[in-house]
Amino acid sequence: MDHEIIQPPTEQPHPPRRVFFRWLTSAAGAVAAALVSVPFVGYLFQQRKQSVHWVALGKVAEFPFGETRTVAFDNPLRQPWDGVTAHTGVFVRREGPGEGAVDRFLVFAVNCAHLGCPVSWFPQSGLFMCPCHGGVYYANGQRASGPPPRGLFHCEWRVVDGNLEVQAPHYPTLHDTLDQTT
C-alpha cells in the first residue's frame, strides 16, 4: 500500500505558545536525562567508602632477621563472593635490629611495578624476579634491572602487641601506591 506523503505546512511564524512548549520540552528532557544519569554514573564509577583494615601476619619473632618470607592472607577488602581471588600475598622482610632495638620490616606487594605480574623471591641471589617481562628487584625492593619504572610497592605495617600487622592492600598501580611516601 502507498503511504501518503505528508507535506509540511507552509512556513508560518510560530505562535509564542509553541515556542515556549518546545523550550519546555527540551528542558524537561534534559532534567529527566540528568535525573537518570547522575545516579547511574555514580553507581558505575563512584568508589565505595572503605575503612582501613589491618591484617595480622604473625608474631614478630616468627620472622628471622635478614630473611624474606611470603605470607598469604584473606584480604578484608573482599566481598563474600570473591572466592580465592581474595587471597593476597605479601613479602615480609625483617631488617636487622635497628637502633633502640626497634623492629623494622619491609612489606612488599607481590605485584611488579611494571604491569602488575606476580614477582617471585629468590633467596639464593637475593632478588625478586618477574615472569612477564623480566623485571628484577633487590631484597630491599629497589629496582635492579628490567622494565619496571620504580621499586616494589611498600605496604603500610605496624607492630601491635608483638604481632606484625599490615594495612590491607588494594591493587597497587603507579599513581595509586600502598603508602604515602613512595
Binding site: E67, T68, R69, W121, P123, Q124
Partner: peptide
C-alpha cells in the same frame, strides 16, 4: 654449600 632450603617454612 650451595644447597638451598626447599621447605616452605625456610623460604
Amino acid at each position: 654449600t650451595p644447597m638451598p632450603a626447599f621447605g616452605i617454612e625456610a623460604g
